[in-house]
């Protein structure tokens, strides 16, 4: 790990699964001088059950998370979410660390991290999800900082519903709903260019009555939502409500 951190700085960049970095490089949007792979760093691909939390190593692939007995037992919503990322090739290569570090506004993990109240663990500190996802591709990570794990508190109930872009399979609107004690969190990804956001009106409604009907009538404003070939802002806003409803239903 020390070696990796030392090699960072300058024009070098970390590479995990390469599923976001390589496309960016192909498009000439990034041209790192060196790539530092984390593949040889021991202990980064473990999944541990910590009782009231589950810790997922940064180098765990989406396939690993989807298939993990621990994740399936403790936070099935997270396993299901990982299983719905991209396609099999992407899931076999892409990692949780890479996904979180990249903070693509259409990625799934940010919604899971925020809704579940996860903590991002790096080689030098811990950052709560609420402070981590700072807008499109923006995080507080320093240039030579390495994510080592993500720690998820175990919720009472949680579920993720995603409307995928038919071409890329990224989220057009992905909603994670999580309930812990009296608190409910609703986190939305894919819909806004600024990345993941919470819908407090839905959260309050669900805290009053945890049912699909409670959110069915709550819309998000289309003003700040993305418009693209798959979905304009108005349709996206509609999908956010539908996905929120379906996520609540799936919470059982």
């Amino acid at each position: 790990m020390d070696e990796a951190v030392a090699a960072l700085g300058g024009g070098a960049k970390l590479i995990a699964g390469g599923q976001s970095l390589l496309p960016v490089m192909k498009l000439n949007l990034a041209a790192p001088t060196d790539l530092v792979s984390l593949a040889g760093v021991p202990g980064l691909a473990d999944i541990a059950d910590g009782g009231d939390s589950v810790t997922v190593g940064a180098m765990c692939t989406h396939t690993q998370v989807a298939g993990s007995g621990i994740v399936q037992a403790r936070i099935p919503a997270l396993a299901a979410m990982a299983d719905g990322i991209g396609d099999a090739q992407v899931r076999n290569a892409g990692t949780i660390g890479g996904s979180v570090a990249h903070n693509d506004p259409a990625a799934d993990y940010p919604a899971a991290c925020v809704a579940l109240g996860a903590t991002i663990v790096t080689d030098r500190r811990e950052i709560h999800a609420d402070h981590f996802f700072q807008g499109m591709f923006m995080t507080p990570l320093e240039d030579d900082e390495v994510i080592t794990a993500v720690r998820f508190p175990v919720p009472e109930r949680a579920a993720y519903a995603k409307f995928a872009n038919p071409a890329s399979k990224y989220a057009v609107a992905g909603v994670m709903v999580a309930k812990r004690g009296t608190g409910v969190r609703v986190a939305v990804t894919g819909a806004s260019g600024d990345g993941v956001f919470r819908v407090t009106e839905m959260e309050e409604a669900l805290e009053d009555s945890f049912s699909a009907e409670a959110v069915a009538g709550i819309g998000v404003s289309s003003h700040e939502l993305l418009s693209d070939t798959a979905a304009n802002a108005e349709y996206r806003a509609h999908l956010v409500t539908v996905m929120a409803k379906r996520a609540v239903e799936a919470c059982g």
Binding site: N165, P166, A167, S168, Y170, D228, T229
Partner: peptide, 22 residues
């Protein structure tokens, strides 16, 4: 699924598998 979309200025909007659905 498939639709090639050009912007009015002639830029190809659906220029990759990110948004051209096969």
């Amino acid at each position: 699924m498939e639709e090639c979309v050009y912007q009015d200025d002639g830029q190809l909007e659906t220029g990759s598998y990110m948004n051209y659905t096969m």
